[in-house]
Amino acid sequence: MTHNTITIDGQEVPFEVGQTIMDAALAAKVYIPHLCHYPGLTPHGNCRLCSIEIGKKSVAACTTPAVAGQQISSNTPAINAARKSITQMLFIEGNHICPSCEKSGNCKLQAMGYFLGMLDEHFPQFYQRRKIDASHADIVLDRDRCILCDLCVRASREVDGKNVFAIAGRGTEAHLIVNSSSGKLVDSNLEVDDLAANICPVGAILKKSQGYDVPIGERIYDQHTISEIGLQESIAKESKSDDN
């Protein structure tokens, strides 16, 4: 395997051919903010939080291959300001009521807001009317909180081997749909231990009747920043379904 290097904010980072810039950065413990990326799942570049600059060009680190000699800017005031705006837009596009959300303290969107110094939503709220699906016996799908990261879609397809979820519509009409005869979770084959039911970075897919059982102070982001957690996460390749 040939080892090459790229440079991220002045730091030399080695990479293997075939790795993306995000792969190389995470392997070298260099954090690039991200919400829709999860090592082990195919990168999609949905959220654009991992936008970086190579020269004057802005690209998503999770989908851009590492090429020897790349001079990359990531942790700069201008790029972080853009990331903050993206995070604010994610907040206003959905209905994220952190004060009563059981994912609070364990939510990546909330943690990203803290990480980027987001103090308000800046943009006017969309107040979209989105449907909640509580038809499943053990799982509830609250589309108010969905940020269309697509992680559940990929987890279901690539790891669970089920194809339970998909994104339908475009632009502000985009929404998470369920692949079942009725379009409801109850008629899908989603199970509570599936990765798709557990990978949601926000509170859109949750287990029923299990809220608020982790005390304040002991939740993930009470104790860690999202950068610390983001450098630890991965799905072992061998856990992927044989069907895929």
Binding site: P99, S100, E102, I132, D142, K208, S209, Q210, G211, Y212
Partner: peptide, 12 residues
């Protein structure tokens, strides 16, 4: 809203 959210919703 789901009923298990209620105590934390209404305390606001």
């Amino acid at each position: 809203r789901p009923y298990w959210e209620v105590p934390f919703f209404v305390q606001r």
